[in-house]
């Protein structure tokens, strides 16, 4: 398998070095860690908002560091949770005395390490609140989770919590906004090919030439079923219907949709899917408030996409529309 890497065990370290050298005005690495923070962290008078998880999902999470989104992002090894001591260092570096909201994707390793980190910083009197994102409607309990997995909906939690923190909400209010997103967002993905981790160097799972896997996880964990390859519209139908079924939205609800690339799919194909998602939303008598298309939460080089739908209210719309200035997502006033 051809990869643009040096030593596989250096990938995360060298990737972080590259991110900082590309965005020196925005990103700073905490010495001796795999944690990136905003250059101005901790921001005076503001609650910190941080996240983290295994690497391999770029631009998640460090791509969302900056004004209006995250203050800190911890990178674990590829598809492996960061350790609790790194998370502890991140939370401390992002606490300006107002407390820190920690956004966790629901995977056992992540949840346990974040829990441990929270306990460690609480001993140092840092006020910390944790929200766990579990937007993947495909499977209950999986290879790495109890309950549903946390996937692309996490980006919306970053955006909403980050905007609430930027406008001066306190820790409890921010956590409430974050929970509001988590209760109103659903995602489902599909893989056309497996991802290949640098260490292993070969595909994580085998898919037949003309097979796709529905309900795929972002680490190549199995989904709900393998089916014969089908046209983009049918894939969009399947994923969108599953998400809408789960959300059960009233007619007229305004939604934000994300057609997210898994890392190896060209934008042209994502837009083909987007076109169909837009039609489906209308067929369900829902209203598209905004539609995002691109690579937000990837799975290394996997080909495929996920579809996210988030139901909105006035508060969430205001927070989603608030300015954000990050390497991977910019929202202008």
């Amino acid at each position: 398998m051809k990869k643009l890497i040096n030593d596989p065990s250096d990938v995360v370290d060298e990737m972080l070095e590259g991110m900082v050298s590309a965005h020196p005005e925005r990103l700073r690495r905490l010495d001796g860690t795999e944690v990136l923070v905003r250059t101005d962290a901790p921001v005076d008078g503001k609650v910190g908002v941080v996240s983290g998880g295994g690497s391999g999902h770029e631009p998640t999470h460090a791509g969302y560091l900056g004004e209006g989104m995250l203050d800190g992002a911890a990178a674990g090894e590829i598809f492996t949770s960061p350790t609790a001591d790194q998370l502890e260092a991140m939370i401390q570096a992002c606490d300006a005395g107002e407390g820190v909201l920690v956004v966790v994707k629901n995977y056992e390793g992540d949840v346990m390490n974040f829990d441990t980190a929270a306990e460690m910083v609480e001993m140092e009197d840092v006020d910390v609140r944790q929200v766990v994102v579990n937007d993947d409607v495909a499977v209950e309990d999986s290879l790495y989770t109890s309950g549903r997995r946390g996937v692309c909906g996490t980006i919306l939690v970053h955006k909403v919590a980050g905007a609430a923190a930027a406008r001066g909400d306190d820790l409890d209010q921010i956590a409430e906004h974050a929970e509001g997103v988590i209760e109103n967002v659903g995602t489902m993905g599909t893989a056309l090919t497996s991802c290949t981790t640098p260490e292993k160097g070969e595909p994580t799972f085998d898919l037949g030439e003309d097979e796709i896997e529905l309900g795929i996880g972002i680490h190549g964990e199995p989904g709900t079923e393998r089916v014969e390859q089908m046209p983009a519209d049918d894939v969009a139908d399947h994923l969108t219907e599953a998400v809408l079924d789960d959300l059960g939205l009233a007619a007229g609800t305004e939604v934000l949709t994300i057609v997210n690339g898994m890392g190896g799919t060209p934008l042209s194909e994502l837009f083909v899917v987007q076109r169909r998602v837009d039609q489906l939303i209308e067929e369900h008598d829902l209203e598209v408030w905004d539609a995002w298309v691109g690579d937000y939460m990837t799975s290394l080089d996997m080909e495929g996409c996920s579809i996210t739908v988030c139901a909105l209210d006035d508060e969430r719309k205001e927070l989603l529309a608030a300015p954000a200035d990050t390497p991977a997502l910019t929202v202008r006033e």
Partner: peptide, 10 residues
């Protein structure tokens, strides 16, 4: 915690 990682670390 810092050396074992995964779930066994915590």
């Amino acid at each position: 915690v810092s050396e074992v990682g995964g779930a066994a670390g915590p």
